[in-house]
Design a protein around this nucleic acid. Structure first.
Lengths: 232, 232
DNA sequence: GTCTATAGTTCGATAGAC
DNA sequence: GTCTATCGAACTATAGAC
């Protein structure tokens, strides 16, 4: 049960040290499983300072969740803008711009966002009122932007199917951000641990093909035809 | 904060009533957020009975998680066997057999498994040691079976890509099981609430197209080619 | 700003009557 | 099997010295 006593930068304010520690402990144990004492210990700070700086455990949790969200979405917007500037807007490029800023959190050591990646999975998959509100507040605006981009790029796609495609992309992205160890267990060595680019491009290829399938005639809108024939 | 005081069948043992209540409260609040007192209140039973029947909160949690897992996987196996008997094995049919028993939990009122659906999402997306162990114990054997079926059905698919395809299918299935309300928020009425068959067949079509894309030449194995061209 | 000390709850678990 | 009563521990939060 040792913890890494997070100290990313040499010059960090006490607030930042607490935020770093809280990010790690909340990611490990969730909101209810984490304790302010464990966070203080991880930060090597006094437990009372958490309330001095943040007021409550709840407020600290929301501060941790909000801290990296704007940087993530700003990077997404910048990547989208770069695509438009270069006139290189394709569905695959849009999905890359959506997934790379979050998926790289857990797999690019230089970003130092592995703890936030786990926390984001925890909150975004939560069905309680706080999780739903926090996810919506920080990530619904960017979601609508990406849905609009997908809709404008794929001919014949309905708005409903664009939403389904976006939600499926997020679902796959989250499974890439959650280090459950399940992929490694199931692959039994057959899945060489590919690098970040290979992982993202594989996911992008998968999702793009899925979205194109929804846009194809008889794709997503209709009911029935429960067992369509193979389309190889 | 009212709760439904779950009483599914008229004749239910106290053990079953406690299991039903625990399923609901654990699904709502997670392991740490739930309390044995809240479970007892939901079950309209005495709090001490939880320890009399199950020994500890931890053991109750594992009993709840295990209870429906065998029925789910037995249904999956039966659906697979029926496909082989009818000589109707296609990738789409395999994915239907994988997803329907879980996705229908939350959307088919007659099954009464909506609470378990939320709990399963909670545990399967958790990165803590207990979540990883419980998911593996109950769902890794069936996972290997489906990976083998996918591998045998899709020509040119590597084992690693079969694992990726399976994990992507599970990720999408879990997002369909978690009632976060996000799809409804983002669709703004454009997504008519389709029935269970339409939701599953749409997901199956999406995933099958993704897996076929991994099997296509240059699909999943290679590195680089970060931004592939569109393939409409 | 940082610390000690502690108030006030609430938790999981158990003992023992019936 | 079911209940009441309660223990000891852990929790969030705060008061107040420095």
């Amino acid at each position: 049960m040792s913890r890494s006593t997070a100290q990313p930068s040499a010059r960090a304010t006490t607030q930042e040290v607490i935020l770093d520690a809280a990010e790690e402990v909340f990611a490990d144990s969730g909101f209810h499983g984490a304790t302010t004492r464990a966070i203080a210990e991880c930060a090597q700070a006094n437990a009372a300072l958490i309330h001095y700086y943040f007021g409550s455990k709840e407020a600290l949790f929301e501060a941790v969740f909000a801290r990296r969200s704007e940087a993530i979405n700003e990077e997404r917007r910048a990547r989208l803008a770069a695509l438009h500037d270069a006139d290189a807007v394709t569905l695959e490029a849009i999905l890359d711009a959506l997934l790379r800023p979050t998926v790289s959190l857990g797999r690019d050591p230089e970003r130092g966002g592995a703890h936030y990646a786990r926390l984001l999975v925890h909150v975004a998959s939560g069905t309680d009122e706080r999780s739903r509100r926090m996810t919506g507040e920080r990530y619904n605006a960017i979601a609508r932007q990406f849905i609009a981009e997908i809709l404008a790029t794929v001919p014949g796609l309905s708005r409903g199917d664009a939403v389904r495609g976006y939600m499926n992309a997020i679902a796959i992205g989250m499974s890439l951000m959650a280090p459950t160890g399940r992929t490694e267990d199931l692959s039994e060595g057959a899945l060489s641990d590919r690098d970040l680019d290979a992982i993202i491009s594989g996911a992008v290829r998968f999702i793009a093909a899925g979205i194109y399938a929804l846009a194809a005639p008889g794709g997503g809108g209709g009911a029935a035809d429960t067992l369509p024939g193979p389309t190889p």
